[in-house]
Design a protein around this nucleic acid. Structure first.
Lengths: 114, 114
DNA sequence: TGAACATATGAACAAATATTCATATATAAT
DNA sequence: ATTATATATGAATATTTGTTCATATGTTCA
Protein backbone atom coordinates (compact mmCIF):
# COMPACT_ATOMS: atom_id res chain seq x y z
CA UNK A 1 0.00 0.00 0.00
CA UNK A 2 3.09 2.20 -0.41
CA UNK A 3 3.64 4.92 -2.98
CA UNK A 4 6.67 6.22 -4.82
CA UNK A 5 7.79 9.40 -6.43
CA UNK A 6 6.65 8.08 -9.76
CA UNK A 7 3.19 8.92 -8.55
CA UNK A 8 3.90 12.61 -8.61
CA UNK A 9 4.68 12.25 -12.29
CA UNK A 10 2.25 9.45 -13.09
CA UNK A 11 -0.62 10.28 -10.80
CA UNK A 12 -2.73 11.04 -13.83
CA UNK A 13 -1.78 7.75 -15.46
CA UNK A 14 -2.77 5.79 -12.37
CA UNK A 15 -6.11 7.56 -12.30
CA UNK A 16 -6.58 6.96 -16.00
CA UNK A 17 -5.69 3.29 -15.61
CA UNK A 18 -8.16 2.97 -12.76
CA UNK A 19 -10.93 4.32 -14.95
CA UNK A 20 -10.05 1.90 -17.76
CA UNK A 21 -10.07 -1.15 -15.48
CA UNK A 22 -13.10 -3.42 -15.83
CA UNK A 23 -15.33 -4.01 -12.83
CA UNK A 24 -13.66 -5.81 -9.95
CA UNK A 25 -16.17 -8.66 -10.15
CA UNK A 26 -15.51 -9.21 -13.86
CA UNK A 27 -11.80 -9.53 -13.18
CA UNK A 28 -12.45 -12.20 -10.58
CA UNK A 29 -14.76 -14.06 -12.94
CA UNK A 30 -12.12 -13.91 -15.63
CA UNK A 31 -9.40 -15.24 -13.33
CA UNK A 32 -11.72 -18.01 -12.17
CA UNK A 33 -12.45 -18.99 -15.75
CA UNK A 34 -8.77 -19.20 -16.64
CA UNK A 35 -8.08 -21.11 -13.46
CA UNK A 36 -10.25 -23.85 -14.93
CA UNK A 37 -8.02 -23.97 -18.02
CA UNK A 38 -4.94 -23.93 -15.84
CA UNK A 39 -4.79 -27.64 -15.07
CA UNK A 40 -3.36 -30.23 -17.43
CA UNK A 41 -5.99 -32.84 -16.59
CA UNK A 42 -8.79 -30.46 -17.49
CA UNK A 43 -7.02 -29.32 -20.64
CA UNK A 44 -6.66 -32.96 -21.66
CA UNK A 45 -10.32 -33.63 -20.99
CA UNK A 46 -11.38 -30.62 -23.05
CA UNK A 47 -9.22 -31.76 -25.94
CA UNK A 48 -10.47 -35.32 -25.61
CA UNK A 49 -14.10 -34.30 -26.01
CA UNK A 50 -13.53 -31.53 -28.55
CA UNK A 51 -14.18 -33.75 -31.57
CA UNK A 52 -16.95 -36.00 -30.25
CA UNK A 53 -18.63 -36.77 -26.97
CA UNK A 54 -17.08 -39.34 -24.66
CA UNK A 55 -18.24 -41.18 -21.55
CA UNK A 56 -16.46 -40.67 -18.23
CA UNK A 57 -14.97 -44.13 -18.29
CA UNK A 58 -13.48 -43.71 -21.73
CA UNK A 59 -11.96 -40.39 -20.80
CA UNK A 60 -10.39 -42.04 -17.77
CA UNK A 61 -9.06 -44.82 -19.97
CA UNK A 62 -7.73 -42.39 -22.54
CA UNK A 63 -5.93 -40.28 -19.95
CA UNK A 64 -4.81 -43.19 -17.81
CA UNK A 65 -6.47 -41.79 -14.69
CA UNK A 66 -9.08 -42.98 -12.23
CA UNK A 67 -12.78 -42.52 -12.89
CA UNK A 68 -13.05 -40.55 -9.69
CA UNK A 69 -10.38 -38.03 -10.62
CA UNK A 70 -12.00 -37.47 -14.00
CA UNK A 71 -15.44 -37.14 -12.49
CA UNK A 72 -14.24 -34.52 -10.03
CA UNK A 73 -12.67 -32.51 -12.82
CA UNK A 74 -15.74 -32.82 -15.03
CA UNK A 75 -17.66 -31.27 -12.20
CA UNK A 76 -15.36 -28.25 -12.28
CA UNK A 77 -15.73 -27.98 -16.04
CA UNK A 78 -19.50 -28.30 -15.71
CA UNK A 79 -19.63 -25.50 -13.14
CA UNK A 80 -17.66 -23.29 -15.50
CA UNK A 81 -20.20 -24.11 -18.23
CA UNK A 82 -17.46 -25.44 -20.48
CA UNK A 83 -18.92 -28.91 -20.92
CA UNK A 84 -22.39 -30.31 -21.33
CA UNK A 85 -23.55 -33.86 -20.78
CA UNK A 86 -26.09 -36.34 -21.98
CA UNK A 87 -27.14 -39.35 -19.96
CA UNK A 88 -27.74 -42.64 -21.69
CA UNK A 89 -28.40 -45.66 -19.54
CA UNK A 90 -25.58 -46.12 -17.08
CA UNK A 91 -23.25 -43.83 -18.96
CA UNK A 92 -22.88 -40.09 -19.15
CA UNK A 93 -21.45 -38.58 -22.30
CA UNK A 94 -19.64 -35.28 -22.09
CA UNK A 95 -18.95 -32.79 -24.85
CA UNK A 96 -17.85 -29.18 -25.20
CA UNK A 97 -20.47 -26.60 -24.33
CA UNK A 98 -18.74 -23.54 -25.64
CA UNK A 99 -17.32 -22.48 -28.95
CA UNK A 100 -14.97 -20.17 -27.08
CA UNK A 101 -13.00 -23.05 -25.63
CA UNK A 102 -11.38 -23.81 -28.95
CA UNK A 103 -10.71 -20.14 -29.67
CA UNK A 104 -9.10 -19.67 -26.27
CA UNK A 105 -6.93 -22.74 -26.83
CA UNK A 106 -5.98 -21.50 -30.26
CA UNK A 107 -4.82 -18.16 -28.87
CA UNK A 108 -2.90 -19.94 -26.14
CA UNK A 109 -1.14 -22.17 -28.63
CA UNK A 110 -0.24 -19.18 -30.76
CA UNK A 111 1.47 -17.61 -27.78
CA UNK A 112 3.35 -20.81 -26.98
CA UNK A 113 4.44 -21.48 -30.55
CA UNK A 114 5.89 -18.08 -31.31
CA UNK B 1 -7.18 -46.96 -14.68
CA UNK B 2 -10.38 -48.95 -15.05
CA UNK B 3 -12.40 -49.59 -18.16
CA UNK B 4 -16.09 -49.96 -18.82
CA UNK B 5 -18.34 -51.66 -21.29
CA UNK B 6 -18.50 -48.46 -23.27
CA UNK B 7 -15.03 -49.34 -24.44
CA UNK B 8 -16.30 -52.31 -26.38
CA UNK B 9 -18.50 -49.96 -28.33
CA UNK B 10 -16.26 -46.91 -28.26
CA UNK B 11 -12.85 -48.51 -28.47
CA UNK B 12 -12.42 -46.94 -31.87
CA UNK B 13 -13.46 -43.53 -30.59
CA UNK B 14 -10.92 -43.69 -27.78
CA UNK B 15 -8.22 -44.61 -30.26
CA UNK B 16 -9.31 -41.86 -32.60
CA UNK B 17 -9.36 -39.32 -29.78
CA UNK B 18 -5.88 -40.41 -28.75
CA UNK B 19 -4.58 -39.73 -32.23
CA UNK B 20 -6.23 -36.30 -32.34
CA UNK B 21 -4.73 -35.25 -29.00
CA UNK B 22 -1.86 -32.76 -29.25
CA UNK B 23 1.53 -33.72 -27.86
CA UNK B 24 1.60 -34.27 -24.10
CA UNK B 25 4.18 -31.50 -23.66
CA UNK B 26 2.03 -28.99 -25.53
CA UNK B 27 -0.88 -29.72 -23.24
CA UNK B 28 1.23 -29.04 -20.19
CA UNK B 29 2.55 -25.83 -21.71
CA UNK B 30 -1.00 -24.76 -22.43
CA UNK B 31 -2.18 -25.49 -18.90
CA UNK B 32 0.83 -23.65 -17.48
CA UNK B 33 0.06 -20.64 -19.62
CA UNK B 34 -3.56 -20.49 -18.46
CA UNK B 35 -2.47 -21.01 -14.88
CA UNK B 36 -0.77 -17.64 -15.20
CA UNK B 37 -4.07 -16.05 -16.22
CA UNK B 38 -5.85 -17.85 -13.41
CA UNK B 39 -5.06 -15.43 -10.63
CA UNK B 40 -6.96 -12.20 -10.06
CA UNK B 41 -3.88 -10.22 -9.10
CA UNK B 42 -2.16 -11.13 -12.35
CA UNK B 43 -5.30 -10.44 -14.36
CA UNK B 44 -5.51 -7.01 -12.74
CA UNK B 45 -1.86 -6.30 -13.49
CA UNK B 46 -2.29 -7.28 -17.13
CA UNK B 47 -5.31 -5.01 -17.46
CA UNK B 48 -3.50 -2.20 -15.67
CA UNK B 49 -0.63 -2.19 -18.14
CA UNK B 50 -2.67 -2.96 -21.24
CA UNK B 51 -3.06 0.69 -22.27
CA UNK B 52 0.31 2.11 -21.25
CA UNK B 53 3.36 1.05 -19.30
CA UNK B 54 3.38 1.45 -15.53
CA UNK B 55 6.07 1.26 -12.86
CA UNK B 56 5.87 -1.38 -10.15
CA UNK B 57 5.06 1.12 -7.47
CA UNK B 58 2.16 2.62 -9.39
CA UNK B 59 0.71 -0.81 -10.08
CA UNK B 60 0.89 -1.54 -6.36
CA UNK B 61 -0.82 1.74 -5.60
CA UNK B 62 -3.50 1.12 -8.21
CA UNK B 63 -4.27 -2.36 -6.92
CA UNK B 64 -3.89 -1.53 -3.24
CA UNK B 65 -1.28 -4.21 -2.71
CA UNK B 66 2.30 -4.31 -1.48
CA UNK B 67 5.23 -3.68 -3.81
CA UNK B 68 6.57 -7.11 -2.94
CA UNK B 69 3.42 -8.96 -3.90
CA UNK B 70 3.28 -7.14 -7.24
CA UNK B 71 6.95 -7.77 -7.92
CA UNK B 72 6.55 -11.47 -7.28
CA UNK B 73 3.63 -11.65 -9.69
CA UNK B 74 5.42 -9.61 -12.32
CA UNK B 75 8.14 -12.21 -12.19
CA UNK B 76 5.60 -14.90 -13.02
CA UNK B 77 4.24 -12.82 -15.89
CA UNK B 78 7.77 -12.17 -17.12
CA UNK B 79 8.60 -15.88 -17.12
CA UNK B 80 5.46 -16.54 -19.16
CA UNK B 81 6.63 -13.87 -21.63
CA UNK B 82 3.42 -11.92 -21.15
CA UNK B 83 5.05 -8.69 -20.03
CA UNK B 84 8.16 -6.81 -20.98
CA UNK B 85 9.98 -4.14 -19.01
CA UNK B 86 12.09 -1.07 -19.46
CA UNK B 87 14.35 0.27 -16.75
CA UNK B 88 14.62 3.99 -16.24
CA UNK B 89 16.61 5.20 -13.27
CA UNK B 90 15.28 3.63 -10.12
CA UNK B 91 12.03 2.60 -11.74
CA UNK B 92 11.04 -0.32 -13.92
CA UNK B 93 8.18 0.14 -16.32
CA UNK B 94 6.17 -2.86 -17.34
CA UNK B 95 3.96 -3.29 -20.39
CA UNK B 96 2.27 -6.12 -22.29
CA UNK B 97 4.58 -8.25 -24.38
CA UNK B 98 1.99 -10.16 -26.33
CA UNK B 99 -0.86 -9.24 -28.56
CA UNK B 100 -2.53 -12.53 -27.65
CA UNK B 101 -3.17 -11.44 -24.07
CA UNK B 102 -5.94 -9.11 -25.14
CA UNK B 103 -7.43 -11.68 -27.51
CA UNK B 104 -7.44 -14.32 -24.80
CA UNK B 105 -9.11 -11.91 -22.37
CA UNK B 106 -11.66 -10.99 -25.01
CA UNK B 107 -12.61 -14.63 -25.55
CA UNK B 108 -12.82 -15.16 -21.81
CA UNK B 109 -15.13 -12.19 -21.38
CA UNK B 110 -17.33 -13.41 -24.21
CA UNK B 111 -17.77 -16.69 -22.39
CA UNK B 112 -18.57 -14.96 -19.11
CA UNK B 113 -20.99 -12.48 -20.63
CA UNK B 114 -23.14 -14.91 -22.52
C1' DT C 1 -35.32 -58.61 -6.29
C1' DG C 2 -30.52 -58.87 -6.49
C1' DA C 3 -26.06 -58.43 -8.74
C1' DA C 4 -23.10 -55.83 -11.72
C1' DC C 5 -21.85 -51.64 -13.56
C1' DA C 6 -21.21 -46.33 -14.44
C1' DT C 7 -20.91 -42.23 -12.29
C1' DA C 8 -20.94 -38.87 -8.44
C1' DT C 9 -19.39 -37.21 -4.14
C1' DG C 10 -17.54 -36.37 0.75
C1' DA C 11 -13.47 -36.54 3.52
C1' DA C 12 -8.59 -36.88 4.00
C1' DC C 13 -4.11 -36.08 2.35
C1' DA C 14 -0.44 -34.16 -0.37
C1' DA C 15 1.25 -30.77 -3.30
C1' DA C 16 1.20 -26.22 -5.25
C1' DT C 17 0.97 -21.36 -4.71
C1' DA C 18 -0.02 -16.31 -3.17
C1' DT C 19 1.23 -13.14 0.22
C1' DT C 20 4.02 -11.27 3.91
C1' DC C 21 8.22 -10.05 6.10
C1' DA C 22 12.89 -9.16 6.09
C1' DT C 23 16.53 -8.03 3.42
C1' DA C 24 19.49 -7.55 -0.76
C1' DT C 25 20.61 -4.91 -4.94
C1' DA C 26 20.89 -0.95 -7.63
C1' DT C 27 20.29 3.82 -8.84
C1' DA C 28 19.93 8.79 -7.64
C1' DA C 29 20.65 12.76 -4.92
C1' DT C 30 22.77 15.50 -1.32
C1' DA D 1 30.37 8.48 0.89
C1' DT D 2 25.99 8.41 2.80
C1' DT D 3 21.19 8.40 2.61
C1' DA D 4 16.85 7.70 0.38
C1' DT D 5 14.25 5.37 -2.99
C1' DA D 6 12.59 1.57 -6.33
C1' DT D 7 12.64 -3.02 -7.19
C1' DA D 8 13.84 -7.92 -6.53
C1' DT D 9 14.08 -12.04 -3.93
C1' DG D 10 14.45 -15.89 -0.28
C1' DA D 11 12.06 -18.04 3.46
C1' DA D 12 8.01 -18.82 6.07
C1' DT D 13 3.12 -19.13 6.37
C1' DA D 14 -1.54 -19.76 5.06
C1' DT D 15 -4.63 -21.09 1.66
C1' DT D 16 -6.08 -23.42 -2.30
C1' DT D 17 -6.51 -27.36 -4.95
C1' DG D 18 -5.88 -32.16 -7.27
C1' DT D 19 -6.02 -36.92 -6.30
C1' DT D 20 -7.20 -40.96 -3.68
C1' DC D 21 -10.15 -43.84 -1.08
C1' DA D 22 -14.43 -45.27 0.43
C1' DT D 23 -18.99 -45.13 -0.46
C1' DA D 24 -23.51 -43.46 -2.24
C1' DT D 25 -26.71 -43.06 -6.17
C1' DG D 26 -28.85 -44.67 -10.07
C1' DT D 27 -29.35 -47.83 -14.11
C1' DT D 28 -29.46 -52.33 -16.50
C1' DC D 29 -29.93 -57.10 -16.81
C1' DA D 30 -30.57 -61.77 -15.17
Amino acid sequence: MSSCDCNIIHEEAVEKARKLMPEESKLYELADLFKVFGDSTRVKILYAISDFEMCVCDIALLLGMTQSAISHQLRVLKQARLVKYRKNGKSTFYSLDDEHVELIFKQGLMHINE
